[in-house]
Measured scan of single mutants.
Amino acid sequence: DDVELRDGDWRVELKDADEEILRAVEEAIKNGASEQELRELAERLIR
């Protein structure tokens, strides 16, 4: 699993992620995405 989400800690570690993925995830976090939404976003972007 390349995506690590810690309970109560919104730092997201994406291994080997490019800047576009990181920006998309950071934007989702700023917009108040839930953990499930972040997982789905990350899975779509990593593929």
Rank of each mutant, 00 (worst) to 15 (best):
D1T: 07
D1W: 15
D1L: 13
D1V: 10
D1I: 10
D2M: 12
D2N: 15
D2P: 12
D2K: 10
D2V: 10
D2I: 14
D2G: 08
D2L: 13
D2Y: 10
D2Q: 12
V3A: 07
V3K: 11
V3L: 07
V3H: 11
V3F: 11
V3E: 12
V3R: 10
V3D: 12
V3S: 12
E4T: 07
E4K: 08
E4W: 12
E4S: 12
E4Y: 07
L5G: 10
L5C: 13
L5H: 14
L5K: 07
L5W: 14
L5Y: 10
R6L: 13
R6H: 06
R6I: 10
R6Q: 15
R6K: 10
D7A: 07
D7Q: 07
D7M: 05
D7S: 04
D7V: 08
D7N: 07
D7E: 06
G8L: 13
G8V: 09
G8H: 11
G8D: 09
G8Q: 08
G8K: 15
G8T: 14
D9M: 10
D9F: 09
D9P: 06
D9H: 09
D9T: 06
W10Q: 03
W10R: 02
W10E: 02
W10P: 02
R11Q: 06
R11E: 04
R11C: 14
R11P: 04
R11G: 05
R11A: 07
V12L: 13
V12G: 08
V12C: 04
V12T: 12
E13W: 08
E13I: 15
E13G: 12
E13P: 08
E13F: 15
E13V: 15
E13H: 15
E13Q: 08
E13C: 15
E13N: 15
E13Y: 15
L14M: 06
L14D: 02
L14I: 07
K15L: 14
K15I: 11
K15E: 12
K15D: 05
K15Y: 08
K15N: 07
K15G: 05
K15A: 10
K15R: 11
D16S: 07
D16R: 06
D16W: 11
D16F: 11
D16E: 06
D16L: 11
D16A: 09
A17S: 03
A17M: 15
A17E: 04
A17T: 06
A17F: 14
A17L: 12
A17D: 04
D18N: 02
D18V: 11
D18Q: 09
D18K: 10
D18L: 09
D18H: 11
E19R: 09
E19F: 08
E19Y: 09
E19D: 12
E19L: 06
E20R: 13
E20N: 11
E20W: 14
E20P: 05
E20V: 08
E20Q: 10
I21Y: 03
I21S: 03
I21V: 10
I21T: 09
I21N: 01
L22K: 11
L22E: 02
L22F: 07
L22H: 09
L22G: 02
L22T: 07
L22A: 05
R23Y: 06
R23C: 12
R23F: 07
R23T: 03
R23P: 00
R23V: 04
A24K: 14
A24Q: 15
A24R: 05
A24F: 09
A24W: 09
A24P: 00
A24T: 08
V25P: 00
V25L: 13
V25A: 01
V25K: 00
V25F: 15
V25T: 01
V25M: 13
V25D: 00
E26K: 09
E26Y: 13
E26T: 08
E26I: 09
E26A: 10
E26H: 04
E26C: 06
E26D: 05
E27L: 13
E27P: 00
E27R: 09
E27K: 06
E27F: 08
E27C: 09
E27V: 07
E27A: 05
A28M: 06
A28I: 02
A28K: 01
A28L: 06
A28H: 03
A28S: 02
A28R: 01
I29N: 04
I29Q: 13
I29F: 12
I29T: 06
K30W: 05
K30I: 07
K30V: 07
K30D: 04
K30G: 04
K30P: 00
K30H: 06
K30Y: 08
N31V: 02
N31M: 13
N31K: 10
N31I: 04
N31T: 07
N31L: 10
G32K: 02
G32Q: 01
G32C: 01
A33W: 15
A33S: 05
A33E: 02
A33F: 12
A33C: 03
S34H: 02
S34E: 02
E35Y: 07
E35K: 07
E35S: 07
E35W: 05
E35C: 04
E35F: 03
E35A: 09
E35G: 06
Q36R: 10
Q36Y: 12
Q36F: 07
Q36L: 08
Q36M: 14
Q36G: 05
Q36S: 11
E37F: 05
E37Q: 07
E37G: 02
E37Y: 05
L38M: 04
L38F: 03
L38S: 03
L38C: 14
L38R: 02
R39L: 08
R39W: 12
R39H: 04
R39P: 00
R39F: 06
E40W: 03
E40Q: 09
E40Y: 05
E40V: 05
E40N: 05
L41G: 00
L41H: 00
L41C: 08
L41M: 05
L41A: 00
L41F: 04
L41N: 00
L41Q: 00
L41I: 06
A42W: 14
A42S: 05
A42N: 01
A42P: 00
A42L: 14
E43W: 07
E43G: 05
E43D: 07
E43V: 08
E43F: 09
E43K: 10
E43L: 13
E43R: 12
R44A: 12
R44I: 06
R44W: 10
R44Y: 10
R44E: 11
R44K: 12
L45M: 04
L45K: 00
L45V: 03
L45R: 01
L45F: 03
L45D: 01
I46L: 13
I46Y: 06
I46V: 07
I46M: 14
I46H: 04
I46Q: 07
I46G: 03
I46D: 04
R47A: 11
R47T: 15
R47L: 15
R47N: 15
R47C: 15
R47S: 15
R47G: 15
